[in-house]
Amino acid sequence: MSPEPIVRLEGIHKWFGTLHVLRGVDLEVLPKEVLVVIGPSGSGKSTLLRTINMLEEPTEGKVWFEEKELTDVRTNLDEARTHIGMVFQSFNLFPHMTAVRNITVALERVLKLSDGEAQERARRELRHVGLEHKADEYPSRLSGGQQQRVAIARALAMRPQVMLFDEVTSALDPELIQEVLDVMKALAEEGMTMVVVTHEMGFAREVGTRLIFIDGGMILEEGKPRTVFKDPKEDRTKQFLARIL
């Protein structure tokens, strides 16, 4: 018997005005899985990721996180989001806070940790991403890669059940991409459940345990990354892979 999924999406539709971005998506994310989401730009993959923590409310369909239905208005979304870490393309660090403060603010205000506990945990997470020495720097003094690693540490410090990565290397200079991918790879090896929207096909092949290809707001193909890359079944997948590989 397969384990209980951490995240379950059921019949998700999303309209932005008259634009039908997601057209009936069903998806389950299992524990310790590294699910890679690929697809052309505008295919709805970011929107799909953002519905998992309800940054985008689906127009139709249901989202479950563990046993909680997030689309039920009675669910406390703030509480649920503490278990779902998210990392963004544009880092979104708080520019008026130091690296360590970026991490402690939610630990103190949301998880109600004491100042000492929060500091300790924040510095441990910074060490985890190799940036303990930058703890007291403001984001503007960090490189893009360093900022993104701080953002990962910030999400990890909440001890989430699942981590969502939304094209986290797309805004980085080429020479800064690897340091972020290395952190993500280490995280996967530690057994973190991850959903990764990415254009990094090397990472997808090497680290991903399962891959879905999205186009036109629907999941067109699904399988082991190596299998899909080597032998895509759908024409659209073939065309997409031919263009980027």
Binding site: D78, R81, M86, L93, F94, V105, V110, L111, A155, M158
Partner: peptide, 15 residues
């Protein structure tokens, strides 16, 4: 203020 700032804060569980 960029929308991402609010999204980052909300994704950390802040109200």
């Amino acid at each position: 203020i960029e929308r991402g700032q609010m999204e980052a804060a909300r994704s950390l569980g802040m109200s």
